[in-house]
Design a protein around this nucleic acid. Sequence first.
DNA 1: CCCTTTTGTGACCTGCCTGTTACCGGCTCA
DNA 2: TGAGCCGGTAACAGGCAGGTCACAAAAGGG
Lengths: 224, 224
Amino acid sequence: MKMLVADDDRDLRELIGFTLTQAGYFVLKAPDGLNAVRMFESESPDLVVLDINMPGASGFQVCEAIRKRSRVPVIMLTVRGEEEDLVRALELGADDYLTKPFSPRTLLARIKALLRRAGMENAAPLAAGKVRLDIEEHTVEIGEGAPVRLTKLELRLLQMLLANAGHTVSSDRLLIQVWGHRNSGDRQLLKQLVHRLRQKIETDPAVPQLLQTASGAGYKLVVE
Amino acid sequence: MKMLVADDDRDLRELIGFTLTQAGYFVLKAPDGLNAVRMFESESPDLVVLDINMPGASGFQVCEAIRKRSRVPVIMLTVRGEEEDLVRALELGADDYLTKPFSPRTLLARIKALLRRAGMENAAPLAAGKVRLDIEEHTVEIGEGAPVRLTKLELRLLQMLLANAGHTVSSDRLLIQVWGHRNSGDRQLLKQLVHRLRQKIETDPAVPQLLQTASGAGYKLVVE
DNA sequence: CCCTTTTGTGACCTGCCTGTTACCGGCTCA
DNA sequence: TGAGCCGGTAACAGGCAGGTCACAAAAGGG
C-alpha cells in the first residue's frame, strides 16, 4: 500500500513517514505542492496525506488536481481554528481532516478508517522495517540498498512473509499461499524458493538475518 | 487452520474457498451434505461454513451430525427472509449465520470473530505462571529467560501440561495426546521426552521445579 | 523460432529428532 | 534378601528436515 505524504514541515513529514512505514505502508514524501502533484501522477499512491499550508501549490490546489483524476482517499492537515479551510477542503473532495497537532496514533486510526471505507484494508502491507516491497515493479529494497528484481513466486513468498512480519508462517500455509493448493509433501519447492530469495535479499545468504528458519515450524521475516 | 466449506453452488464455494485461502487458511470443499459429513469425520476441520440448502443432506442435518461429536465453530449460510431457517440453525447449535448475498470481507470478519471467541487464533501466547509458550514459534520462555526452541513433540507435551497447569496429567493421556494412539506400554518414549524437556526448561534438571513427577500417576506442571 | 529467465525435480550432505536398548537406584512385597 | 516395578539417565542408530548443487522443463521475450 503506497501512501503519499505532502508537507513542507520537514520534521512533521518525517514523523508521519516513520509512523506509516512502521505500520507497514510504503511511503512517498513530497516537500511541497508541486512535487506532490508530480509524485501523485507518477506513482499513483493509494492514499494521500496533504498539508494545507504549503509553498509551490497549496493543499487545496493539490487536492483539486488529484480529484480531477482519482477518487483516492485524501486526508488534509489543518491548523486549529481555521474553520473555513476545513469547509473548503471537504468541498474539494477531501475525505477526512486532522487538526494539528495530532498524535501519530490518531493519524493511523483515521487512515485505517478511510481504507476500510474504501475497502482497501485487505491489501497486504508492502513494507516492514527495512524491507520495502513494490508489487507493481516486482522489486524489493532492503534498507538503503538498490531495488532488487523478484520473480512472481519470490514476490508472493515475500509478500506473505511481510504480511506476517515478525511472526512465523508455517510451511503449509506458505505452500498454499504461493502455489495454491498443492501436495503438502512438496517441501522441496519451498526450500528452493527460500534459497533463491535469500540469495537476493540477504547480505550473507549462508547466515540469514531477514528470512529466518523456525525449525519444524516454518519461516519468518525478522524486522526490528 | 483447516476449514470445511460445504455448498452446492460451485461458484460460491470457490469464491469462499478463494477468500479463505487468501486469508491463509487451509480449505476443504464439499459439494453436498453427505460429502460434508464424510469430510468432517475424516479431516476434523477447525471451522465449518455450511449452506442450508444442499442436496444430499441439508445444512441442518449436517449441522446436527457435526454437533453430535464436536463443538467446532459452525457458520451457516441462509437466504434473506427465511427467518425460521435462522432460528432452526441456531437451535441446532450453529454459532453464527450469514444471509446471502454477503461480501467476502464480511465472511472473513465473522470467521475471525468466531475463532477469537473459540480462543483458537493462537496469536496470543499460551501462558501460565512464569511459563510462556509461543506455539507458532515453537519456543518457551521461563520467567525472564531467553526463548528456548522446542521440538514438535516437546511442544505438544508442554502444551498439554500447560493446558492442565497445576494438575497432574496421567501418562496414558499424555501418550495419546502427544503421539496419537499408541501402545500404552510404551512409557519409555514419555520418560525420554520428559527428560529432554527438563534439560531445556529446568534450571537444575536433576531437581525439577516445573515439570514434576507424580509417582504412579503422571506428570504435572507446577506454577504458582 | 531461439535464447533467456523462471520454475520444478532429483540427488547429496548435514545436523537434529526420535525411537530404542541398556543400565542404575529406590521402593515394595513376598 | 531378591524379584519386580517404576522412574531417571546415557548412548546410539535410523530417519527426517533443511540447505545446497546441478540440471531439466516450462514460460516468456525478442
